[in-house]
Write a protein that binds this DNA or RNA. Structure first.
Lengths: 253, 253
DNA sequence: TCGATGCTACGGCCGTCACCGTAGCGTCCC
DNA sequence: GGGACGCTACGGTGACGGCCGTAGCATCGA
């Protein structure tokens, strides 16, 4: 009764509080590539014991941030939906602003900002290159709550092996812009973008890096995209020596 | 060294932790209408003593979420930028999902979801109505990272008394979609949207409600918008008895 | 000049919660 | 079946941090 204007403040605080713990934030960050991970993997990634991780995961579940799929004796956790990933991206934009003083370490930052998965689609320089090439070519049109493909845009998706008319859940836009936290420019999200990313992994045009959201564009992938997408241009990533960081677990003191 | 994949996790946690305290969340929520408020006002809105609020504000400043303008013996705090508002909106989307069980109280929710300011532009049913009318009429086109006005769109802005070619900071898109947390559909953000909102308040087409982000569309405003924007349609808000909630401060026990 | 006001700095109190120990339940492999 | 493995439930410990007291500095008005 003492806080007349705090309509959603408490709810907002509840969600933010869930994300505000380092261990939980690490887990959420790791899940932002859209994959589903087991509790043990998440525990290791977060740097805590499995018991602790279990508690965190239960809290995240109760808060509606995660979904779980039980499979045998494993439980695979994933983000509850694209809104969660989008909210996290919004926070990443803040966390990586120049003003805040904290930036990604340059090596790692270069890999991640070249190409990575953002929930289920491409982000980074690669995602933006795709977005820009489609836009510059007039293959995108404004639509209900996002983008729609023009006829020429649909032809491009067909050429890449993605059915542009597969209407997933009709509520969500097939294509929409998503602000990129590393480049501060939009890339393509939505289930068509996800289908395109999926196709790229299937065909070996892109590959996931181990233990990272970073993505590698293969030589074949570059050729395919340049052929199908007039104007597509994406600077090569530096070869980036594999850091071979492979400490299995923090040695218990 | 024990968390190989947590590149931005800690930074993300830091930002989220700042937003995760109820008092701070209330402050941020109150500032989401883009206005600048004094420390005392924010203390009252957050339901804490001024000393406590001062500490919170210092933390939010250090985290880069707020900016301050000293004016005499008052210090006016406001959000540091649109990115902050956007990140908060992203969290609100999560906080107000059906699944979470917590929704806005219906009375208040109805007022806020009809029309409100979102940092510096209109959101809610009003914001969406403007967005939809412009889109349906073909007045928007996809542009570099957002929307651009077509010739007919520019004419509409001119008719409303807003210069569509005022290029603010050229880095930011003049118009871009912004997901609405109450309606789950996009409304218009960007500095042209802000200019339009500003014009509406100046001309008395809309009015702010006291102690709330809610906005009222006046009869004149409705006429003006319907005349200038073919297809504009915005259901009337329920008259909504003014709750006259006016407890000056929580009685100290 | 003096008092009132807005805001911030410091100190002590106390609640909340992250953490990991042990223990228990369900599942897979041999 | 027996054992190993994945995960969760519970309890105690410790620390971080929110809270408000008093005190101090800057500004405005008379």
């Amino acid at each position: 009764m003492s806080t007349p204007n705090s309509y959603s403040g408490p709810y907002l605080a509840e969600i933010a509080h869930l994300m505000g713990d380092p261990a939980r934030a690490n887990m959420l960050h790791a899940l932002m590539d859209g994959r589903a991970l087991t509790a043990k993997e998440l525990a290791w990634l977060a740097g805590v014991a499995p018991q602790t991780a279990s508690g965190h995961l239960a809290k995240l579940m109760q808060g509606g941030l995660l979904a779980v799929a039980a499979q045998g004796r494993h439980r695979y956790y994933r983000l509850a939906g694209p809104e969660v990933a989008q909210a996290l991206e919004g926070l990443m934009v803040l966390a990586n602003r120049e003003g805040s003083g904290r930036r990604l370490p340059s090596r790692v930052g270069a890999e991640l900002s070249f190409a990575r998965t953002c929930y289920d689609h491409f982000a980074g320089k690669l995602g933006i290159a795709i977005h820009d090439a489609l836009m510059a070519g007039g293959h995108l049109a404004v639509s209900e709550g996002g983008y729609a493909l023009t006829a020429s845009g649909k032809a491009i998706f067909v050429a890449l092996g993605v059915d542009p008319d597969q209407s997933g859940r009709s509520r969500r836009a097939a294509l929409r812009p998503c602000l990129d936290w590393s480049e501060r420019r939009p890339h393509l999200a939505g289930h068509l973008a996800a289908a395109l990313a999926c196709r790229c992994f299937e065909m070996g045009w892109t590959r996931r890096r181990k233990d990272s959201r970073a993505v590698t564009l293969t030589g074949e992938g570059r050729s395919v995209l340049e052929a199908a997408l007039p104007g597509f241009r994406c600077d090569a990533p530096e070869p980036a020596v594999t850091p071979s960081r492979r400490e299995p677990a923090p040695a218990p003191a």
